[in-house]
């Protein structure tokens, strides 16, 4: 079945991320001068304002920072409701948004802030593999 939900439009400076994603790698922008990872990808380091940026392969691991269960959704996502959205604290620092996998949207109290998650990629089209995060055992 083909991917029918919204697919990101790729930017002029985010190609390494999408290239990595198609190879199953979570590529993250890091500042060469202050060594810090940031997300989303910038033209300039938001921490020290250096423009000396590079891409590194992340561990693909993180933890739940917070979450919510979407009961009222729109467009193609409506047929998926309820589903759990979450912000993920990356092990490398900073935060990503996801639709969380490996959880029961009918039991939101069972989802634990701080629970470990790993990334996985779903093919949306030939150029776009979208990262999603799944709750795993500690």
């Amino acid at each position: 079945m083909s991917y029918d939900k919204p697919i990101p439009t790729q930017g002029t400076h985010t190609k390494p991320f999408w290239q990595g994603a198609s190879e199953g790698k979570l590529m993250l922008p890091r500042c060469v001068d202050c060594n810090r990872v940031h997300w989303y990808p910038r033209h300039i380091c938001p921490h020290c304002h250096s423009m000396n940026l590079e891409w590194i392969e992340g561990s693909g691991r993180g933890r739940i920072h917070t979450y919510a269960v979407q009961h009222l959704a729109f467009g193609v996502w409506a047929k998926e409701a309820p589903y759990v959205t979450a912000y993920i604290d990356l092990n490398e620092g900073d935060r990503m948004l996801t639709v969380l996998r490996g959880v029961d949207p009918e039991k939101p109290e069972d989802i634990k802030i701080g629970a470990p998650v790993v990334v996985e990629f779903e093919k949306a089209n030939d150029d776009t593999y979208i990262p999603f995060w799944r709750v795993v055992e500690e």
Binding site: P8, Y40, V69
Partner: peptide, 19 residues
């Protein structure tokens, strides 16, 4: 670009995370 794939749209869909 890095958040549009994840089914958030309306204001409550966002604010619920803060709650």
């Amino acid at each position: 670009e890095m958040s549009m794939a994840y089914g958030l749209g309306s204001a409550p869909s966002n604010y619920a995370h803060a709650m």
